[in-house]
Amino acid sequence: MSNDSDPLHNPLLSIREVHASAGGKAILKGLSLEVGPGEVHAIMGPNGSGKSTLARVLTGNENAEVTSGEVLYKGQDLFGLAPEERAREGLFLAFQYPVEIPGIANSTLLREGLNAMREHRGEPELDAIDFLEIAKAKADVLEMEPTMLSRAVNHGFSGGEKKRNEVLQMLVLEPTLAILDETDSGLDIDALQVVAKGVNALRDKGRSFIVITHYQRLLDYIVPDFVHVLANGRIVRSGDKDLALELEAKGYAWLEEGASA
């Protein structure tokens, strides 16, 4: 599991000393992180520590402005890629607040997205029938009604349905690196287990995850290889899954003090 012991190992994602601001305010203050293929990294931290800004920086959201530092993804400069290009290279964000888009069917969004990725990989376009077969099978994994596919994207969905819909999109698009931004927030334990089931279904040697969460509970179901604590725009502590348990017991205050010191 350790990167250092493998000289041939190239990290999938390498975040180097990234500084970023949002709304004119500095949020990330020299954040560094490496994610190798097949690894699951959990990022925990108090509100305002920069967790969502990190997700925005990685996926090219204009609301986060990178002021310095670099990110290499599959060895290439991530900041040189537009959001759709990052997605086609297998980067996926499960949004903390999924956007409602009345008038566009879930299945239309998914098919357009999947076909854009397939085209990028030089694969033939899927027709509506082949696509629906795939989408229905994925919906089934998440115990979602197939009718969810014909509903407008997130429109009128409950909070739990929206989160589940994000995971459905992840299953259909089969990313190389998935970032889950507080996908567990607001979910009851049943929904949490279903979401975790979706993530675990996708886990394999080549696929990596960054799981951003407030709560240790999610990590009972999606067991991480590494846990990092983000405070004041930097990673102040890294460990294995036991760190999450420690945080659950002790809170963040003891680490934040360390961060600002």
Binding site: T59, G60, N61, E62, A82, P83, E84, A87, R88, F92, L93, F95, P98, V99, I101, L109, L110, E112, G113, L114, A116, M117, H120, V153, Q169, L173
Partner: peptide, 8 residues
């Protein structure tokens, strides 16, 4: 942005 994040 949401659509672009889905490769479109």
């Amino acid at each position: 942005y949401y659509l672009r994040a889905r490769a479109i």
